[in-house]
């Protein structure tokens, strides 16, 4: 049921040429080089250590690996971090 609704919305946004993060609640990730990263539309912080940050998002778990990671700003649906980012990956679990 939920999957079919998603598909309809996806098709709708494609036809209307609208940004999908607005309607589909997808995370929007903005990076500046490998030193700064902003995640909008996250669904909560799962883990925070200076080497790993795990965030729950609509499309799975966002895993950020790096060194000396620091959360600059943390509010509802926005997180800004800096440090030396090595990788950004999505995982299903």
């Amino acid at each position: 049921m939920a999957k079919s609704v998603d598909r309809i919305i996806k098709g709708f946004t494609a036809v209307m040429d609208m940004p999908s993060d607005v309607l589909m609640d997808m995370p929007r990730i903005r990076m500046m080089g490998n030193v700064e990263l902003v995640v909008e539309n996250h669904k909560g912080l799962l883990e925070y250590t200076p080497k790993t940050i795990r965030l729950r998002t609509k499309t799975g778990i966002l895993i950020i690996h790096g060194r000396r990671l620091r959360i600059l700003f943390f509010v509802k649906d926005e997180l800004k971090l800096d440090g030396h980012i090595v990788s950004v990956a999505f995982s299903e679990h």
């Binding site: 912080l45 883990e47 925070y48 250590t49 620091r70 959360i71 700003f73 943390f74 509010v75 509802k76």
Partner: peptide, 26 residues
């Protein structure tokens, strides 16, 4: 502490300059 941070932002409390000092201290 991650759980706490999630609870905080759910309540509309914003935090910044979050830094983990040791494994159980932020």
């Amino acid at each position: 502490i991650e759980c706490l941070l999630n609870l905080l932002i759910d309540d509309g409390i914003s935090v910044w300059s979050v830094e983990r000092v040791t494994t159980d201290v932020i």
